[in-house]
Amino acid sequence: MALAAKTTIDVLRAIGEDTRFRIALLLHHGELTVSDLTDILGQSQPRISRHLKLLTEAGVVEKHREGTWAFFDLVTTGPIADVVGAAIDTVDPDDPVLAADLDRLALVRNQRAATAQEYFAAIAERWDEERSLHAPDDVVEAAIVEALAERPYHSVLDMGTGTGRMLQLLIGDRLDVRAIGLDNSHSMLGVARANLERAEVHGVDLRQGDVYSPPVEPGFDLVVVHQVLHFLHDPARAVHEARRLLNPGGRLLIVDFAPHALEFLRTDHAHRRLGFRDDTIVGWLEQSGLRPDEPCRIEPQHGATNPDDERLVVTLWLAHDRAAAPTTDSPTDAVPEGALR
């Protein structure tokens, strides 16, 4: 779709100022806050906010909130993105001003990563205890990749993204996938953001929000709910919301535990539900209008121990939109190359 002449002029005028163009160049490398930009550019918060307001009004920049924080990112699709991208592509990567800004961007990201690591270190022992009770992560992840290899996807929503690991696994270095990670915890989004930056996974939109009322519009080929339902007081409602966000022909993948009797996970790890029976999850999926595949059970490896000598079985439930005919697309781009390496 072509732009009206006035819109094109407005876009060019918005980025045609020194600070605003520097902001666009920085946002080309990932989302940032006002505070990040003031640290990088050495300008006052009111001035940076005013520039961001102009860029947002021109459609060059998108804004989303995480509680009291606001993150800004370049628009990534459509003709305005094409105009801005063309301007950015003309810049010499060795430009001294750009190079200095990117050096300061690296410092900001390192500080962000350190903060996220400090938070995660405080909960790591609890996570490690739980992970020791089920099959190794690489085994579970291999099963996820295999389950999704049937056909490609070009838009992904990770509901309850946590550390962002599912986005790393499913997106990798693909640039043709629109990806959103949703989590209710600002601190966990900080962990996810640092992990994705470290893994050089670009273009992911991380948002703070509730799985019962996701702050996104429908339109996803794949929605993932990985190790989330057991924390929820109304998991059926979360499944219904996940299904609502699918494209026609989309798929919903739920990963969680089979029923178990490890009560300490409820008292010490905030699990509300001690796993789920297959007929429970399948019932929710069918009630939401989806066609479930046969569940995939991943048994724990021998040797894991816990106070009751019981281990956790991880189950994958994959379901498809009933209204869609099976695709004939090649499955070769269903998962990123090298996802299992």
Rank of each mutant, 00 (worst) to 15 (best):
R20N: 08
W317Y: 14
L265H: 06
R251C: 00
R151E: 05
A4E: 13
R104Q: 13
D221A: 04
L105F: 08
L253G: 02
V145M: 15
G85H: 08
E200R: 10
R112E: 04
E118F: 11
R341I: 13
E17Q: 15
E150Y: 13
G78R: 15
E286W: 11
L32P: 09
F21K: 10
E286C: 07
I123L: 09
L37E: 12
R237W: 09
V255T: 00
R207V: 01
A99L: 02
P336T: 08
V216G: 05
L246M: 05
L167N: 05
D18T: 09
A147C: 04
R297S: 10
T76Y: 01
P93T: 03
L252D: 00
T315N: 11
E197G: 03
A58C: 05
P292E: 03
V201D: 06
D39I: 01
A24S: 10
L316H: 00
A99N: 07
G219M: 13
H202C: 14
Y153Q: 06
A70S: 14
L74R: 01
G338S: 14
R291M: 04
E57W: 13
A199D: 02
G209T: 04
V223W: 00
T77M: 05
R109W: 14
A121K: 05
A81E: 01
D205S: 07
P336S: 04
P295L: 06
M159H: 11
P300E: 14
E294R: 09
L148W: 15
Y153H: 09
L102W: 03
F21C: 09
L169I: 00
I9G: 09
V156F: 01
I254K: 01
G16A: 13
E150F: 11
